[in-house]
Amino acid sequence: MADTRNAGRPLSPHLQVYEKSLTMTLSIVHRITGVALYAGTLLLVWWLTAAAISEPYFDMVQSVFGSWPGKLVLFGFTWALIHHTLGGIRHLVWDTGRGFDLRHVEMGARLTLAGSIILTAVVWAIALGVS
């Protein structure tokens, strides 16, 4: 816990002193999508176990996911999954010691964001179009 005995002591500057950047936003978005996917796992496992339980129960679950709110959640799940995967690949590239210069960091951020939006659109175009 923070020591509050000398609350007036000088503190080192934190996030608010920096100008906002795309790389900064993607950093926290990687964590947020990770946590969202953690919760989303419950949906995937619910769907799988429903298929193993019974026909009426599975049909109920399918109709929940097939409804508009359900589709909206699945759309968000798709984007989070793709974005977190692309962001993860970006991290794996950094793990090899490459791509730390500003130009590549910025380029990686743009590619990750654009890639996740395009791939999500492609997946949903297939999902909605051909059905």
Binding site: A51, S54, E55, F58, D59, Q62, G66, T78, L81, I82, T85, G88, I89, H91, L92, V123, I126, A127, S131
Partner: peptide, 26 residues
């Protein structure tokens, strides 16, 4: 993370192929 890359691709394709599938099909 590395193992997850091909597995996520599998998952997305599987779910796309089986969208709106019946229990029997799953």
């Amino acid at each position: 993370a590395i193992a997850g890359i091909p597995l996520v691709i599998f998952l997305v394709i599987y779910l796309l192929v089986h969208r709106g599938a019946s229990r029997a099909e799953i």
